[in-house]
Computed example of a mutant assay.
Amino acid sequence: MIPAFENVTTERLVLRPFRESDLDAIFTLHSDPETNKFSSHGPMRTLDDARERLTMWLNDYSQKGVGYWAVARREAPGVIVGVGGVRHKELQGQHVLNLAYRFSPETWGSGYATEVSRVALELARKHIPDVPVVAIIHQLNTPSIRVAERLGMRLDRVIDYEGMPSRLYLDR
């Protein structure tokens, strides 16, 4: 594990690798139709789907040293309100770090996605500088597009991502 990505605290948030005990939180977040409105897979249907996702994220940390974080508020560190950060991915034959963020609806508009993503970008630039960071965002997901633009990411092109036209943003 890359220590810098292990446990991070921002002004308002606690960011940490996922653990086995987070299964229900992953399912709750990913089974909500609102939080998955722009996902090509749609809402998660079963706890087995959540277990598969959790296993993938745990493997990211054990095999690559970095992956998406479980995100909680500092005042309630035991309650996961979202997921965010970077993970290694192959995209159109290129190795990249995919920047992603997904939060429960009650947190929308709080700036948490920008806060998490800003830290993830800083750490990726410092510790994994040879791998480009991208954000793949559904064309109609205006709030996520605004986050990428606020971070200074630039629109590179529109791609077909898992059957959906999506904007590909680059960190630099």
Rank of each mutant, 00 (worst) to 15 (best):
L29C: 09
L29I: 13
H30F: 14
S31Q: 12
P33L: 06
E34V: 11
K37T: 15
F38C: 00
G42D: 12
M44R: 07
R45K: 15
R45Q: 15
R45D: 07
R45T: 12
T46M: 11
L47K: 15
D48W: 06
D49S: 02
A50P: 04
E52V: 10
R53G: 03
R53M: 13
T55A: 14
M56K: 11
W57D: 06
L58I: 09
N59Q: 14
N59A: 14
N59D: 14
D60Y: 05
Y61Q: 01
Q63M: 11
K64F: 13
W69Q: 07
W69H: 04
A70T: 05
A70Q: 03
V71Q: 08
A72L: 02
A72I: 11
R73I: 01
R74Q: 12
E75I: 07
E75K: 09
E75Y: 09
A76E: 13
P77F: 08
V79R: 04
I80V: 15
V81C: 11
V83R: 14
G85C: 05
V86P: 00
V86K: 00
R87W: 01
H88V: 10
H88I: 10
L91H: 15
Q92W: 13
Q92C: 11
Q92Y: 15
Q92A: 15
H95P: 03
V96A: 02
V96C: 02
V96W: 02
L97V: 10
L97A: 10
N98G: 05
N98C: 08
A100Y: 03
R102I: 13
S104A: 14
G109H: 10
G111V: 11
G111L: 11
G111Q: 10
G111W: 04
Y112E: 09
A113M: 03
E115K: 05
S117T: 02
R118Y: 07
A120F: 03
L121K: 01
E122R: 14
E122I: 09
E122N: 12
K126P: 02
K126I: 06
H127A: 09
D130K: 13
V131M: 03
V134F: 12
V134K: 08
A135V: 08
I136F: 01
I137E: 02
I137V: 15
H138F: 07
Q139E: 14
N141M: 12
N141T: 11
T142W: 07
S144T: 03
I145F: 05
R146Y: 07
R146M: 08
V147T: 15
V147F: 09
V147G: 10
A148L: 07
E149M: 01
E149A: 04
E149G: 01
R150N: 14
R150F: 06
G152L: 04
M153I: 05
M153R: 00
R154H: 15
L155Q: 13
L155A: 11
L155H: 15
